[in-house]
Design a protein around this nucleic acid. Structure first.
Length: 449
RNA sequence: GCCCCGUUCGUCUAGCGGCCCAGGACAUCUGGUUUUCAGCCAGAGAAUCGUCGGUUCGAAUCCGACACGGGGUACCA
């Protein structure tokens, strides 16, 4: 196999790296690295109307956060306009493209009429046979042959073919001088020596246009692999209206990048040994592009949460991550002793606050009404005992037995009085960390200072 | 409408002609451990392999039709 070079080509039109793009980035990266190749990032910023300031910066930051580094880039299509123009013009000279002066209003009307007549919306060819160039705004359209078939082989789907007569004379260079995706992607993939185009399924329909472009230029076709699209639980294409789609959202929710990457890896692909939890390096060893499933998977946040819990439980640097996640509001020295009590209860970093918040702040409200008698009872049971959880437990159990009270009820009373909640980390171990003074203050109902 | 892609438990998947009256994971439920919740352990339910027809001694696996789902159909990517 020739040198493997893959790429992702995000457009800076959203708030951040779309999770679907993270998915294709992962596959492109892993595939390239498995074959000792390069992974490239190219920013396709050719749509000036949808351009979002700061989007690129966040996309790159998310890639870095996910642990998907690139070897070259980021390249920008907006800086390569002269190249596309030259290429488009070359096609015009060869007769494989033509100038079109139709206004957008006319085209819109044309499509409307076609729709009314139940015809497929396609360019009607008005400018196709214009003899001479005119002044004024124009675009360049691809001159698609009227007969024949254009086909290509997709590594994960096999041969796919389209009838030329159904392929539209796509605009390849816009009137503002920017290329459309179709021209840009073909020119750049060729110039950047991309060997494998691994992208989302939504591109299958436009691939014949790309294939035609390669043929017209006389360039060698890359190998195509169209990944299944990630879907919402209702099976539609993963979208921000129905699901959180930005990488930053998952970061803010306290998901670990390793868990996200691991989870994404299990979509449409399965570890040959049936493993569910594995690192990106392990994946590289056994990854096989041709084993990608063709069915579009549903993005299941529940399974992601489980995966995240797996990573949290074995994370040797969890305290630091919590410290950073909460922007240093909890001192690392106080986080560390709490860790063993909360680690296996957390699915996301964000759950640290709900589980351990009481260590840092006295409860303002209580999940169930307190019993003054029981609080008094447990308070005195703990008054003179060593501040060690085993000793405390024995003291409480002994006292409860003596009074004929159920220890269980006493523990719950104590828990609510000190933490405000009915569920949480192991009680007495927590109190040991909280300290005798603070515990007694809370049992005495000392107001928040 | 037209074109293209797809269809195995609720979800992610294993399976690539006999090992499958379909295996694993998440989720769900039950029991155990237990001061709560998790975690861990044990177990359960959950897929007539979209439907119908064909090929074959034999089909989830190959072929066809249909149904359903998705994507595309822009001077958006």
């Amino acid at each position: 196999m020739n040198a493997v070079r893959t790429r992702i080509a995000p457009s800076p039109t959203g708030v951040d790296l779309h999770i679907g793009n993270a998915y294709t980035a992962l596959i492109n990266y892993v595939f390239a690295k498995k074959h000792n190749g390069q992974f490239i990032v190219r920013i396709e910023d050719t749509d000036r109307t949808r351009f979002v300031e700061g989007s690129e910066k966040r996309i790159l930051a998310s890639l870095a956060w996910l642990g998907i580094p690139y070897d070259e880039g980021p390249f920008h299509q907006s800086e390569r306009l002269d190249i596309y123009k030259k290429c488009a013009e070359e096609l015009v000279e060869k007769g494989h493209a033509y100038y079109c002066y139709c206004t957008q209003e006319r085209l819109a009307q044309m499509r409307k009429d076609q729709e009314a007549r139940h015809e497929p919306p396609m360019y009607d060819g008005t400018c196709k046979n214009l003899k001479s160039k005119k002044d004024g705004p124009h675009v360049i359209r691809l001159n698609v042959p009227e007969t024949g078939v254009t086909k290509f082989t997709d590594v994960i789907r096999g041969e796919i073919s389209f009838e030329n007569k159904l392929i539209d004379d796509q605009v390849i260079l816009k009137s503002d001088g920017y290329p459309t995706y179709h021209l840009g992607v073909v020119v750049d993939d060729h110039l950047m020596n991309i060997s494998h185009v691994i992208r989302g399924e939504e591109w299958i329909s436009s691939t014949p246009k790309h294939v035609l472009l390669y043929q017209f230029f006389g360039w060698e076709l890359p190998i195509y692999a169209h990944m299944p699209l990630l879907r919402n639980p209702d099976k539609s294409k993963l979208s921000k209206r129905k699901n959180p789609v930005w990488s930053s959202f998952y970061r803010e929710q306290g998901f670990l990048p390793e868990a996200i990457v691991n989870y994404l890896a299990t979509l449409a692909w399965a570890h040959p040994e049936g493993k569910e939890v594995f690192t990106i390096e392990e994946m590289m060893k056994v990854f096989d592009l041709t084993q990608i499933q063709t069915t579009a998977p549903v993005f299941d946040v529940d399974k992601l949460r489980w995966m995240n819990g797996e990573y949290i439980r074995k994370d040797s640097d969890l305290g630091k991550k919590i410290f950073e996640f909460y922007s240093h509001i909890y001192p690392i020295s106080q986080i560390t002793p709490i860790l063993p009590l909360v680690r296996e209860r957390m699915h996301t970093l964000a759950e640290f606050a709900t589980l351990a918040g009481f260590f840092f702040e006295r409860p303002h409200e209580f999940e169930r009404p307190k019993s003054a008698e029981l609080v008094q009872f447990v308070k005195s049971a703990l008054t003179n005992c060593d501040w060690n959880h085993d000793v405390m437990e024995k003291a409480i159990r002994d006292a409860a037995e003596k009074e004929g009270i159920k220890a269980r009820d006493v523990f719950m009373e104590l828990r609510v009085a000190v933490t405000g909640k009915t569920v949480g980390p192991p009680l007495l171990e927590s109190l040991e960390i909280l300290g005798r003074d603070e515990t007694h203050k809370r049992l005495s109902g000392v107001a928040y200072a």
